[in-house]
Simulated assay, not measured.
Amino acid sequence: RVSLSDFRGIAACGGFSYGDVLGAGEGWAKSILYNTRAYDEFSAFFSRDDSFGLGICNGCQMMSNLYELIPGTSDWPRFVRNRSEQFEARVAMVEILESNSLFLNEMAGSMMPVVVSHGEGLVEARNASSQQLLESQNACLRYVDASGEASEYYPLNPNGSALGLNGFTNDDGRFTIMMPHPERIFRSVQNSWRSPDWGEYGPWMRIF
């Protein structure tokens, strides 16, 4: 009923947005990959040079499975069941890495608490190791410990991903995916500590 040619940006949201079951993100992707019209619409959208997109949690898993349609994402990993084999809902500390992500522009080096709420956030390499993703600057977010060092340890890293990686962008930065939920902690009052200088919005509001 609606063509993606009328849009410049899309956001694939989290919160079990395609079904209240684990693996829903992969099912969401398959509803695009195995539907001719949807496939053509998304393929054309991703191929444009003026389009952009953000995938969070469930939406991150979905977009990671559309990597063949998105230019500059051949090294994107897939996301599988947490090493704890449990659904993890908590607040974790992340560092924003240097990357081309338009959403994280000028935020590299920031370390901030963020909401985590997923059962399948463990990074599983497809075509590149976590170290290669880090070196190519396709990785844009990672879990860190109290010293600001990348963490692979539970519960600081709730899913066990190598090098703490949990967010990725494509080569030109127009498409970004991440497991954490910055949209759930963009207001100052959603933080356990906040500077009185912040006003209504916290640091994550910069993405939006």
Rank of each mutant, 00 (worst) to 15 (best):
E95M: 08
E95Q: 12
E95I: 07
L97H: 03
L97F: 00
L97T: 01
L97M: 12
E98H: 15
E98I: 01
E98G: 14
E98K: 14
E98P: 09
S99P: 07
S99I: 09
N100R: 14
N100A: 14
N100L: 08
S101A: 12
S101D: 04
L102H: 13
L102I: 15
F103V: 06
F103K: 05
L104F: 10
L104Y: 03
L104K: 07
E106P: 07
E106Q: 13
M107H: 05
M107P: 06
A108F: 08
A108D: 08
A108E: 05
A108Q: 14
A108T: 03
G109P: 11
G109E: 03
G109W: 02
M111D: 07
M111T: 14
M111I: 14
M112T: 07
M112R: 14
M112K: 11
M112W: 11
M112P: 00
M112Q: 11
P113G: 01
P113E: 07
V114D: 09
V114H: 07
V115I: 15
V115C: 15
V115Y: 15
V116I: 15
V116G: 13
V116W: 15
V116T: 11
S117N: 15
H118W: 07
H118N: 12
G119A: 11
G119E: 05
E120T: 04
E120Q: 01
E120S: 07
E120A: 02
L122T: 06
L122C: 09
L122S: 08
L122Q: 05
V123S: 11
V123E: 12
E124S: 12
A125F: 02
A125H: 08
A125G: 04
A125M: 04
R126G: 00
R126E: 06
R126S: 10
R126W: 12
R126D: 03
N127V: 00
N127P: 02
N127G: 00
A128G: 01
A128R: 01
S129G: 05
S129C: 08
S130Q: 05
Q131P: 08
Q131E: 13
Q131D: 10
Q132M: 10
Q132N: 03
Q132A: 12
Q132R: 07
L133P: 01
L133D: 01
L134H: 02
L134A: 03
L134C: 08
E135D: 14
S136E: 00
S136I: 00
S136Q: 09
S136L: 03
Q137G: 11
Q137W: 10
N138Y: 11
N138L: 14
N138W: 06
N138I: 13
N138P: 02
N138K: 15
A139T: 09
A139F: 00
C140L: 11
C140Y: 10
C140I: 03
C140V: 05
L141S: 05
R142M: 06
R142C: 02
